[in-house]
Amino acid sequence: SFQYVPVQLQGGAPWGFTLKGGLEHCEPLTVSKIEDGGKAALSQKMRTGDELVNINGTPLYGSRQEALILIKGSFRILKLIVRRRN
């Protein structure tokens, strides 16, 4: 089963996490790295392996390109929903 975790990061880029996968690579869009001391790490809500399913209220369909555009369009606040295996 899965758990959906809301994450809100503040203060602008860099957000402190790296993505891998996506439709382009025929795999889920997941968090591959969280930078020590970065905003994602400080939130204590994101983990490597989390799947990104929503950015700023926009549902994602797995495209890494789409996710990067939405993330780049976030100035002060980035709201994410990640899906994690229980």
Rank of each mutant, 00 (worst) to 15 (best):
S1I: 15
F2G: 04
F2A: 04
F2K: 03
Q3C: 10
Q3N: 11
Y4Q: 08
Y4H: 07
Y4P: 02
Y4A: 06
Y4R: 01
Y4T: 08
Y4L: 10
V5L: 10
V5K: 01
V5M: 07
V5Y: 11
P6Y: 13
P6I: 11
P6E: 15
P6W: 10
V7H: 08
Q8L: 13
Q8V: 13
L9I: 01
L9C: 11
L9P: 06
Q10G: 10
G11M: 07
G12K: 08
A13T: 07
A13R: 08
A13G: 10
G16L: 04
G16S: 02
F17G: 00
F17S: 05
L19E: 05
K20D: 11
G21C: 02
G22P: 07
G22R: 01
G22K: 03
L23H: 09
E24I: 02
E24T: 08
E24H: 11
E24C: 05
H25I: 13
H25F: 13
C26K: 12
E27L: 12
E27V: 12
E27M: 13
E27T: 08
P28S: 09
L29T: 09
T30S: 08
V31P: 05
S32V: 10
S32N: 11
K33H: 14
K33I: 11
K33D: 15
K33M: 12
K33A: 11
K33L: 10
I34V: 10
D36V: 13
G37K: 10
G37M: 07
G38R: 01
G38W: 02
K39G: 03
A40C: 10
A41F: 08
A41N: 07
L42M: 11
L42A: 13
L42W: 08
Q44H: 11
Q44W: 05
Q44L: 12
K45I: 11
M46C: 01
M46W: 04
M46L: 14
M46A: 03
M46S: 01
R47L: 12
R47G: 07
R47H: 10
T48L: 13
T48G: 07
T48P: 14
G49E: 08
G49V: 02
G49P: 00
G49Y: 07
G49R: 02
G49L: 00
G49A: 05
D50P: 00
D50Q: 05
D50K: 02
D50A: 01
D50Y: 02
E51C: 06
L52D: 00
L52P: 08
G57H: 00
G57L: 06
T58K: 12
T58C: 09
T58P: 00
P59A: 11
L60Q: 05
Y61D: 15
Y61N: 15
Y61C: 15
G62A: 05
G62T: 04
G62W: 04
S63D: 13
S63R: 09
S63Y: 12
Q65I: 07
Q65V: 08
Q65R: 13
E66A: 11
E66N: 11
E66Y: 06
A67K: 05
A67P: 00
A67C: 01
L68Q: 13
I69N: 15
I69T: 14
L70F: 06
L70Y: 09
L70Q: 11
L70M: 12
I71C: 06
I71M: 14
K72S: 11
G73S: 12
G73E: 12
G73I: 05
S74N: 10
S74I: 05
F75C: 13
F75Y: 13
F75W: 09
F75M: 14
F75E: 15
F75P: 15
F75A: 14
I77F: 10
L78Q: 06
L78G: 02
L78F: 02
K79Y: 07
K79W: 05
L80W: 04
I81S: 01
V82D: 03
V82A: 05
R83C: 07
R83N: 01
R83M: 04
R84S: 02
R84T: 05
R85N: 08
N86G: 09
N86E: 12
N86Y: 08
N86C: 11
